[in-house]
Each structure stands twice: as C-alpha cells, then as structure tokens.
C-alpha cells in the first residue's frame, strides 16, 4: 500500500518537475479534459458496436444540447466565482408560463415564449441586484429564487403537465433541418449559444471584466471595473439562458412538466466543472465547457450503448467516472492549484 502511494507520489512529482521548456508536455497536461474525452470515446467505440455510428453521434449532440444552453450561462457564473442554484426551477417556470399563456390563455406566439424567457431573465436580474447591492451571497439569493420560481410553477400548473406546445417551441426543441436525418435545430441553437458565449468571454471587454473580477475582485475594482455591474449582468445572462433552455426542453418533450428540468442543476454545474472551469472563479472558458459537455454526453450515451451493463448500475458508474475524470483534471491541469497556504 505504502509503495503504491510513493509510486503515485513520485509519478506526480515527476510530471510536476517537467522542465519549463517542454511545451508539449505542458500542453498535454493542460488539455487533460480533452484526453479524458478521447479515452471515453475510444473505450465506448471499442466496447459497443453502435456507439460510433453517425446517428448515435448525432444523438449525443442532441442529448447534450439542452444542457449546453444551461451551461453557457453557468460558465459565466462560475467564472465569476459565483453560483446559480435557481436555473432548473427558473427554466421550468419559463416553460410553464409559456405553455400556459399559449394553451390556456390562447395568446399567439411569439408572446408566450418571449414572456417565459423574459421572466427568467428578470429573475436572474433580481438575484444579481440582490447579491450585488446587499452583498448577499449568490448561493442564498439563487436558492431563494429556486423556491420562488418553483413555487410559481406549482401555482400556474397546479401540479399538472401541459401537453400542448406551440409550433415554434416544438420546432426549436425537436425540429430538424434537411429532412428526418438532418441536423436537429436544437443542436444548432446550442452551438449558437455556446459560440455567442465564447465570443463574449474571449473577445469583448466585458468578458475580460468577468475573468478579472472572478480571479481577483479587489484588483478589478482597483482597475476601475464596476464589479457590481459585472455580477448583475452575469446573473441576468444566466437567467436568460435558463429561460431559453426551459423553452427548448419543453419543445423537445412536447410538453411543459413541472419537474422536467429538475436534474439539470447538478448536471450543468457538473459539466462545466468537468471541463476544467474553476468553482473559485477566474479560470476556465467556454471551450472547456464544450469539452465538459461532450464528456458528460459521451458517458451517458455510451453506458446506454453497452447492453451488458446492469441498467440499475448506470448512475453509480457515471458517478465513479466523473470522480476519476475530476481527479485527472486536477492532477494534470491544476498544477498551479496546489495548496499554497504555507
């Protein structure tokens, strides 16, 4: 036992001791999530016949698309070192409100969809303002928002599923471009959202402010950045993406269900962090989120493609693989994140 421990320790030490000049080794280490993804792909490709078929690859993309829209906003939030616990409930509210307006009140599109997304965005704005102006941690404001949005969903739906959705929502969620074998609209929407997020984070002044504030709020303030405004805008963006994801999810399921998006909160945070974005803020990117999403999707889909695995074990295996992937991420990519308290 002790000898394995020392072997691992010396291996890690060796990797850390790599000379600075070995750019390739460092690049290799920095891309740890990408190697995890490649390893999973290789494994499932060998273990299952159907996995690498184009139709299945398209399935993976379709399966992670809703998650991707959630994750776009969440990436902003985590980069800022904040958290949004309300996204799943806010998404449900957006969908339920849209469906209720369209079905029960007979209001034509685009008003129901716009109202759903608008309310979600407004809730994000409120969390942001409450946290920025009154210095309440986003953990608390968004927890409250989870209850508020969840409560409104219950009130509007009375616990019932609305099984009729507008054509617009259905097109966004389950339409295809180019016939039945074509590209799902939902994938295009997800890609557009991720790309937009990437451009904002990477190429705009606001994006830089997000990184600065997340990495070192004091330094950002000293450089004249209005960190309160950055927080408010980021929480608003996350509200918007949650609302949008709610509508998309409704279109995909052809119904608005009070609890359809429940699992998305943990999945979203998991996927973003898996990509290598730090919960402490300042480190990460939208591209890393894309990798995290693909790891998540590959894992979920791959396990479904291996018929010999006990269906009741899948969640357990997912958890174990996630933990391993996170460990690999920190050992390789997080070389600077060693405990430096002493």
């Amino acid at each position: 036992m002790n000898s394995t421990k020392t072997t691992v320790a010396s291996l890690v030490e060796k990797l850390r001791a790599l000379p600075k000049s070995s750019v390739w080794a460092r690049r290799f280490a920095a891309l740890a999530p990408l190697w995890t993804l490649a390893a999973l792909f290789l494994f499932f490709g060998l273990a299952s016949e159907g996995f690498l078929r184009p139709i299945n690859l398209r399935n993976i993309l379709t399966q992670v698309s809703t998650l991707a829209i959630f994750a776009t906003g969440m990436t902003f939030v985590l980069l800022l070192g904040q958290i949004d616990l309300g996204i799943a409930a806010v998404a449900a509210l957006s969908a339920m409100l849209g469906a209720h307006m369209f079905t029960k009140m007979g209001i034509p599109e685009p008003w129901p969809i716009l109202s759903g997304i608008g309310v979600a965005t407004l809730l994000g704005l409120i969390s942001g303002v409450a946290s920025a102006r009154f210095r309440i941690p986003t953990f608390m404001t968004t927890l409250a928002m989870q209850l508020i949005a969840g409560g409104l969903v219950t009130y509007i739906s009375k616990g019932r599923v609305i099984t009729e959705v507008s054509d617009v929502a259905a097109f966004l969620g389950s339409g295809k471009i180019g016939g039945n074998d074509g590209l799902p609209v939902i994938v295009i929407v997800a890609i557009v959202m991720l790309l937009l997020g990437h451009v904002i984070l990477r190429y705009t002044r606001f994006g830089r402010y997000v990184y600065m504030t997340g990495a070192n709020k004091a330094a950002a303030r000293l450089a004249g950045v209005n960190t309160n405004r950055v927080l408010i805008i980021v929480m608003t963006i996350c509200g918007f993406t949650a609302g949008f994801a709610g509508i998309i999810s409704m279109g995909r399921l052809h119904s608005a269900q009070p609890d359809a998006t429940e699992s998305f909160l943990i999945d979203t945070i998991g996927a973003v962090v898996l990509g290598g974005t730090s919960l402490a803020g300042g480190r990460g990117s939208m591209l890393q989120t894309v990798v995290g999403l693909l790891i998540y999707g590959t894992l979920r889909n791959g396990l479904d493609n291996i018929p010999t695995i006990d269906i009741y074990l899948k969640e357990f295996i997912t958890g174990v693989v996630l933990l391993i992937a996170l460990l690999i991420n920190t050992v390789f990519a997080g070389r600077e994140q060693r405990d430096q308290t002493i």
């Binding site: 600065m212 990495a215 070192n216 004091a218 330094a219 000293l222 300042g282 480190r283 600077e336």
Partner: peptide
C-alpha cells in the same frame, strides 16, 4: 498590497 492589485496568474 500587490496581491490585491494584480492578477498573478
């Protein structure tokens, strides 16, 4: 405090 004013990474 330089730690407060700079982004060390």
């Amino acid at each position: 405090s330089r730690r407060k004013s700079l982004l060390l990474d």
